[in-house]
């Protein structure tokens, strides 16, 4: 029933001689189909928690259960498989392979999954149309604007029908108009495909569009209004 369960996660980084506690006991329950923002100032631990949920980083203590999988019990190769099939990632920048076109970037994940060529193309085109990139299939990343590049990244994250899309400050490199447009597309996808989105931001405009806002301060949950917005919109 919960797509993500985090139980009392802690993570400490060693910066030279100093131990930095990036996450100090965070517990979260995220329902399927929700649209959740992680907000907080720089250094509060947003990226760390997203990386841990996505199996890119491992917590020092605590457990993450993603769509029924206990991440602590999985090895690197199983985690890679989990990411490939169940998680979509959108990063702040450098999301795309520069030598591949928009269409090929989206197709590539499916290539890794072993989807055959025709289905790959059909699905990639459909999802690019959905994010408003029809007719831009063959553009290379360098020939796309920042907002368009992020939309390709969203399309790629969605194309394999993941359990959750993790987006680390997807709008941080965009101007506010473009950022808002991207967020609208994400929300549209969330509603249309019932895909869970968990994204981080420190932009208030972005936070306002979330159905649920989790405030992080110093590696802890400072405020979580829960799922009450879910029904409201």
């Amino acid at each position: 029933m919960y797509i993500v369960e985090c139980k009392n996660i802690t993570k400490t980084y060693q910066q030279g001689n100093v131990a930095v506690q990036a996450v100090r006991g965070i517990s979260l329950l995220i329902t399927k189909g929700s649209f959740v923002a992680l907000a907080g100032p720089s250094g509060s631990g947003k990226t760390t928690i997203l990386n841990i949920i996505g199996g890119l980083d491992s917590p020092d203590a605590g457990e993450v259960i993603l769509d029924g999988n206990y991440l602590s019990k999985m090895n690197q190769s199983e985690l890679a498989n989990l990411r490939l099939h169940k998680v979509g990632f959108v990063f702040q920048a450098y999301n795309l392979i520069p030598v591949l076109s928009a269409l090929e970037n989206v197709e590539y994940v499916m290539l890794l999954q072993g989807v055959d060529t025709i289905e790959r193309q059909d699905r990639a085109k459909a999802i690019l149309d959905d994010v408003g990139l029809e007719g831009k299939y063959s553009r290379r990343p360098a020939e796309l604007s920042g907002g368009q590049q992020q939309r390709v990244a969203v399309a790629r994250a969605l194309v394999s029908n993941p359990s959750i899309v993790l987006a680390d400050e997807p709008t941080a490199n965009l101007d506010s108009g473009t950022g808002l447009a991207l967020l609208k597309i994400m929300k549209e996808m969330n509603e249309k495909r019932n895909v869970t989105f968990l994204f981080s931001t420190h932009d208030h405009m972005v936070m306002d569009h979330a159905r649920r806002l989790i405030q992080i301060r110093d590696g802890q949950v400072a405020d979580d209004q829960g799922e009450e917005n879910t029904d409201a919109s």
Partner: peptide
């Protein structure tokens, strides 16, 4: 390196 990192994050196996 960044690109390989991205691909691995997306679930690409080292062997690939």
């Amino acid at each position: 390196m960044r690109e390989f990192g991205l691909l691995k994050a997306l679930g690409m196996k080292p062997w690939w």
